[in-house]
């Protein structure tokens, strides 16, 4: 049993979301930084998509009422289990009565707290992710509040060193001074004026405070304009889509984005870089770089292969550390 000691309207239970429910209009949802959630689950020998807590509001504190193995991954936030400082991307077993505290990140924006077995909340439409907009999934379809108690799915005890163990190469985070995002051209890319395309690629776009699980609004000195008026029928959109409403400032669709929309789309952020954006702090300059689809596929395949390699490495590491 895990007790939440700090409430907020933003910390939610997330897994990999509901990609198969999009035809019903249900947001894909799921962890904004899937790789960080995956790393936590790998450290705990869970399925990569087991449900954990996505934390964006700090300080965040939980008390363990039973012996529980957990991992903290994602943003570089100072983490302490009672008085013990935990390194980044670390897994350890808490004793009953111990308190974990996560403080505001020094780098990155979202931390993931995962537990051996994964959080035991009822799956809704095929996932345990919280859909805040729809009000379902996670714990009663809402963010975690002070006093909430969560339990984990049954799993065998995980043997690990008493001081815990972690990744030698933690999940990469965007540097504090700029985030570089790789994109593919989207449907209306060529309808933007040449100056706008130039601006899109060369300008520093600032991440505004209007950034949540649905979308990240960016702001630049020059606005993006179409070379002719467009009136688009509503169409399906995916997380990563860079929409440009008539105001001319781009909005990047994130995991809880609407499944359809009607604004022109200039580009789509490639999946591996969307997590970097989700770890970007408000006020940071964001730069777009257009790549080819072949390059994007190579990057995505490399990341998938890397995750498989990492899973094997962690399994080996755990055996060596314990025995």
């Amino acid at each position: 049993m895990i007790e939440i000691l700090t409430g907020s309207s933003l910390n939610t239970i997330q897994d990999f979301g509901r990609p198969h429910a999009m035809a019903m209009g249900v947001a894909q949802g799921g962890a904004m930084d899937r790789l960080a959630l995956s790393h936590g689950n790998l450290l705990l020998d869970n399925p990569v998509d087991a449900a954990g807590i996505e934390i964006v509001f700090f300080p965040f504190r939980v008390r363990f009422h039973a012996e529980t193995s957990f991992a903290v991954t994602g943003a570089a936030c100072p983490a302490t289990l009672d008085d013990l400082k935990l390194p980044r991307d670390w897994a350890i077993t808490a004793r009953p009565g111990q308190t974990l505290t996560l403080r505001a990140p020094e780098q990155g924006a979202r931390a993931y707290l995962t537990f051996r077995g994964g959080l035991d909340v009822p799956p809704v439409l095929g996932a345990r992710s919280t859909d805040l907009k729809g009000g379902f999934g996670g714990l009663e379809g809402r963010a975690l509040q002070k006093g909430d108690r969560l339990s984990c799915l049954a799993a065998s005890t995980l043997r690990m060193p008493a001081a815990g163990y972690g990744l030698t190469r933690p999940c990469p985070l965007p540097p504090a001074d700029r985030t570089r995002i790789r994109v593919l051209p989207a449907a209306e890319h060529d309808v933007f004026t040449p100056e706008s395309l130039q601006t899109f690629h060369s300008a520093a776009w600032t991440l505004t405070p209007s950034a949540n699980r649905m979308g990240y609004r960016l702001e630049g000195q020059n606005v993006l304009k179409l070379s002719r008026p467009l009136s688009l029928f509503s169409h399906g959109i995916l997380p990563g889509t860079v929409q440009v409403p008539p105001a001319g400032q781009p909005i990047i669709q994130m995991m809880d984005a609407n499944t359809c929309g009607g604004y022109p789309k200039i580009a789509t952020v490639i999946a591996p870089d969307l997590r970097l954006l989700s770890q970007t702090v408000v006020g940071t300059p964001v730069h777009f770089e257009t790549i080819t689809r072949d390059d994007a596929v190579q990057i995505i395949r490399r990341e998938a292969a890397e995750l498989i390699r990492l899973a094997a490495e962690i399994a080996t590491l755990r055996t060596q550390l314990v025995f």
Partner: peptide, 20 residues
């Protein structure tokens, strides 16, 4: 993976790791 009919348009998703 998924087809999302829009208004006179259709979005299709697939796993680019497996599918060209």
């Amino acid at each position: 993976l998924q087809t999302i009919p829009g208004v006179n348009n259709l979005l299709v998703t697939f796993d680019a790791v497996q599918t060209d």
